[in-house]
Design a binder for these strands. Structure first.
Lengths: 112, 112
DNA sequence: CCATTGTGCAACCATTGGTTGCACAAAAGC
DNA sequence: GCTTTTGTGCAACCAATGGTTGCACAATGG
């Protein structure tokens, strides 16, 4: 069942730009809208919007520091998201395997 | 690195309605826009659009059967998508663990 | 042959990921 | 201290997309 999935968390992580942002933040530890947009193919304003989304679902946390706002990954929340990814993945995987087994059994029946 | 991810595949699977559709198709083996929309909180037309998206990225395959069009999951392609999910998941997981280890080492240093 | 049912297509609406432009506060240079 | 950078936030705007309703039409069933 996919119904156990938090859709907000998932769709936050579903956007490719946001995924890259999380990658960068994880690699560097911390970043601002400007530093992130330097390494991304979108404008600073777009990055700022994404940071807003990620902040709202709790995947990152931003703190004002002087004139800039620093963001870092909330590790616990990202761990939760990862858990959901792998949960859905293995649910589908399980179904696929079951289908494969059934297909093989039918092959067997035919040969008899 | 998330750069190895096929964004089309991922964002196809990123939509919650499409995820539920895949669940239903996997459970039932086959379905049409109408039968799926019976069990989903959206209209038949919305489901038809989603089926179009899923078909375009190859996650499902639709074949005309009389007056209706039957869709089923392309298992190989879904397996690919699952592989990418778990790949990104474990990449992040790895980074999180590394961060955790470093944090623990710093704790150690302090105690000395 | 007529009524039903499943589809596909078009128009329309709200949200969202993106842009540009601007105003303003904090740092840095002189 | 005053001026120039530099980082932010906000607003307007645009295109794509997930959703809706409405309609026309082909296939099935009585």
């Amino acid at each position: 069942m996919t119904s156990t999935v938090d859709d907000d968390l998932w769709s936050a992580v579903g956007d490719p730009t946001r995924r890259r942002m999380l990658d960068l933040l994880l690699a560097d530890g911390v970043g601002t809208a400007t530093t992130l947009s330097d390494r991304l193919p979108v404008t600073r304003q777009a990055v700022a919007k994404h940071l807003g989304v990620l902040d709202r679902v709790g995947l990152v946390h931003g703190t004002p520091a002087g004139r800039e706002r620093r963001y870092e990954v909330d590790e616990a929340q990202l761990a939760r998201a990862v858990a959901q990814l792998t949960a859905v993945g293995s649910a589908w995987d399980g179904r696929l395997q079951r289908i494969k087994r059934i297909a093989e059994r039918i092959e067997q029946e035919k040969k008899r």
